[in-house]
């Protein structure tokens, strides 16, 4: 019984650990991604006629995403993660071709997506129900 209790405690602590990591670290990554997307959204809106100036911001955002994407595979549905990757790739091509309409649509979609995913990771009644 003592052995089982120890195993149960280890499992319990592991669960709490994973939950806490998810709530803090993953939430931080997604929040940061959301903030960077918001900045990009503003930049795209401000540079309607010359989108090439936002290329660096997209590269920066894509770099940030590439750095953290792998770790998120542990917690997130893989299809959801590829949505962000696809969206960033599309956005990059729209910006390089100076296609404002598609670029703003894509950046809005990305913003909507990151905004939606922050509460999904959290511990709240909405998720429990």
């Amino acid at each position: 019984m003592v052995k089982r209790t120890i195993i149960a405690l280890v499992l319990f602590i592991s669960l709490i650990g994973i939950g806490t990591y998810e709530m803090i670290a993953v939430n931080k990554i997604i929040t940061r991604l959301d903030n960077k997307t918001a900045e990009l959204q503003t930049l795209v809106k401000e540079n309607e006629n010359n989108l090439t100036v936002v290329t660096d911001s997209i590269d920066n955002l894509k770099g940030y995403w590439d750095k953290h994407e792998y770790g998120l595979y542990l917690m997130f549905n893989h299809k959801d993660l590829s949505t962000v990757t696809d969206s960033l790739s599309k956005l990059k091509s729209y910006v390089s071709s100076n296609d404002y309409d598609d670029a703003i649509t894509e950046v809005n979609l990305l913003k909507e997506y990151t905004e939606k995913n922050i509460p999904i990771m959290g511990f709240n009644l909405q998720n429990i129900l």
């Binding site: 319990f12 592991s14 669960l15 595979y73 917690m75 549905n77």
Partner: peptide, 19 residues
């Protein structure tokens, strides 16, 4: 497409409930 942990966490939780 589902992370393995999404399957493992509920199973561990149920084992703990059982315990």
């Amino acid at each position: 497409a589902l992370p393995l942990i999404h399957g493992i966490i509920p199973i561990i939780t149920l084992s703990l409930v059982h315990f």
